[in-house]
Design a binder for these strands. Structure first.
Lengths: 347, 347
DNA sequence: AACAAGTGGGACAAAAATCGTCCAGCTCGA
DNA sequence: TCGAGCTGGACGATTTTTGTCCCACTTGTT
């Protein structure tokens, strides 16, 4: 920290806390607008009085506007949020946490966004936005991009902006239908990416759960073979990280499957693989999607996922994640991950 | 102001005032240490309670130490003062005021130091220190330096440090004895300069008030002639600016003299010349010191003087001051000067 | 050696600000 | 049309701040 800020902190020790508090409030309003005092006080974990005091001030400073439907961040407020973005990252220790996560997860790049998407759904949109920005920088370099499904992935597709169309881009659905909401399926998301960027799309319309025989047969189909070849050539993989149990329940998994997953101690899921705490593959769905080896060969991998509830899943998957993976997550997940590893160290 | 600070100000409007207040207190303690709450509250113009609250905090922050003899700035406190120096100059608007003074006084360089030497005598030492620093940078370039007397000049002599001796420096007393305290006479101060820098000194031992005949006669004396030649060659002039009335009363002036000075509306004094508000010479002591023309020929001139009580004098003298003059003053004088000129504009 | 001026810290009642908690009146989406 | 959720107002209870003492002590001077 620069000596000027250091000195100010010495002279005004209250500043740090107060700045954090007000920034968080302003930020939360920005994410959840329009929002009222009571809802806000729950999200921020403060008393209503406190929230009221601060929002009154923010209103006087014209950083927010209060309408009958709730409070909104004003244009000036947006500017303040933007101007303080990096500074607050430092203050909240996000930069420090990024360093810690890099070391814990064994990867070279981590981006942590403020707040917790478990509490504030809009944080997911933030993750999506940053992921989209990062991806866009890779488009000139890499053309073959495999994407998976999930709500965070959907958030990315929403935030991709098409400054300049690039017809040479090719988006590949990394797996088939998973019994999820259609909007969150890999196919849908790959299509959205393609549409926004002007690129092409390859979808994989295959049910997820196949018998051994059907699987073998499909693999001999030319359409499927072509997909497998594409997977071999994949340069970029963008994927979410799932909670094993959540996903297993959400899918139309058989009782036998659920049992194997549970008994094996699976906590995370990615590309149809289920991993336990140590990163061992506990179970694997026989699907025609991208294979782990193919993922590992991709020069750039982007993993996304936030919320403290995903901490164990992230921790598990990154035991075996390729080191060239970049993780974009949020403060809630990051704090939980650090907390979990520290507890582990105690024993 | 940079956008980051701007944004912080928006989010924490109390910050500005609070920072100013605490910095001023810390600064004043630094100047007047050891000092107690009550004395401090008078100097700073705050209530004792307020001072107490803030000093309690400063003590907790380990920026000051409280002994039974009073409060002292700690080493950490010094560091904080130093780190915030430039920032606070901006905050207090000193930089802005410097610009204004340059324009008002018609010179190219002005340095304003914080606080008011009328309230806090130690501010004079600060002026002295900055003047000494500035002078020292000129020593390699200019060797013949004329100095006058006065308390501020004495402050400079105290602060001159002799990093490396320079025997080629020559200090010249710019005028004779003026009935002032010996310690504040030009001769004494020139000697001090010479001693500290390892240079030579030329003193002028002549009473200040001479009859016309005595003056004519002295001017033909070789010793005096030599001085006049030195004045012609003078490269640097360092001088104070006096309050006409104050100086006239302080000297053993005749009644007739005092009347001429008063009736003429003299407000400032320098080099034995008395000037009215418009900068006209109202009266002049027939002394063998440096002449105004000789001052004007010097490539570098340093004028020093602070305290709001000197504002009118400074304003007056600078009506005719050579443009190559640099002024070092304090906040008190600067504010008053600006106030006076703004009032004038109203009419 | 006595003294006066000045010091920080303790104390405490009075005054002020803050806090918790209601409610009225409004808008907006279902 | 209804109800959930919103803002802004209100107000007594509570906490904090403020003004103002005093006291024991150091320090420099007489």
């Amino acid at each position: 920290m620069d000596p000027l800020t250091e000195a100010k902190k010495k002279l005004m020790p209250e500043m740090t806390e107060l700045l954090k508090k007000r920034y968080q409030i302003l930020q939360t309003i920005g994410l959840e607008q329009p929002i009222g005092r009571r809802t806000l006080s729950e999200l921020a974990g403060m008393t209503e009085r406190d929230i009221r005091k601060e929002t009154d001030l923010l209103r006087n400073q014209q950083l927010i506007e209060a309408r009958t439907s709730g409070m909104y961040v004003s244009v000036q407020g947006e500017e303040v949020l933007e101007a303080l973005k990096d500074f607050m990252r430092e203050m909240a220790g996000l930069s420090d946490m990024e360093k810690q996560l890099k070391s814990i997860l064994g990867i070279t790049r981590v981006l942590i966004l403020p707040q917790d998407s478990d509490d504030i759904p809009a944080v997911k949109a933030n993750i999506g936005k940053e992921a989209a920005r990062l991806l866009e920088t890779k488009f000139p370099l890499y053309k073959k991009i495999a994407v998976t499904g999930g709500s965070t992935m959907a958030a990315i597709s929403k935030e991709i902006t098409a400054d300049k169309k690039d017809a040479s881009l090719q988006f590949i659905a990394a797996r088939g239908g998973l019994g999820e909401d259609v909007l969150h399926q890999a196919n849908t998301i790959a299509s959205l990416f393609a549409e926004k960027t002007g690129g092409a799309v390859k979808t994989l319309y295959l049910p997820d759960h196949l018998s051994a025989e059907a699987y073998e047969m499909m693999m001999r189909e030319p359409v499927i073979k072509e997909m497998m070849e594409l997977y071999d050539q994949t340069e970029v993989v963008v994927h979410g990280i799932g909670n094993a149990e959540e996903i297993a329940l959400h899918r139309k998994s058989s009782v036998e499957e659920v049992n194997r997953i549970r008994n094996g101690g699976a906590v995370s899921e990615a590309f149809g693989y289920y991993f336990d705490k140590e990163g061992n593959v506990v179970y694997r769905i026989r699907t025609a999607g991208i294979q782990m080896e193919q993922v590992q060969n991709a020069p750039f991998i982007l993993a996304v996922g936030g919320g403290r509830s995903k901490a164990t899943a992230i921790l598990s998957y990154f035991k075996i994640a390729p080191p060239q993976t970049t993780l974009i997550t949020d403060e809630g997940a990051a704090r939980k991950i650090i907390e979990l590893t520290q507890k582990q160290e105690e024993f």
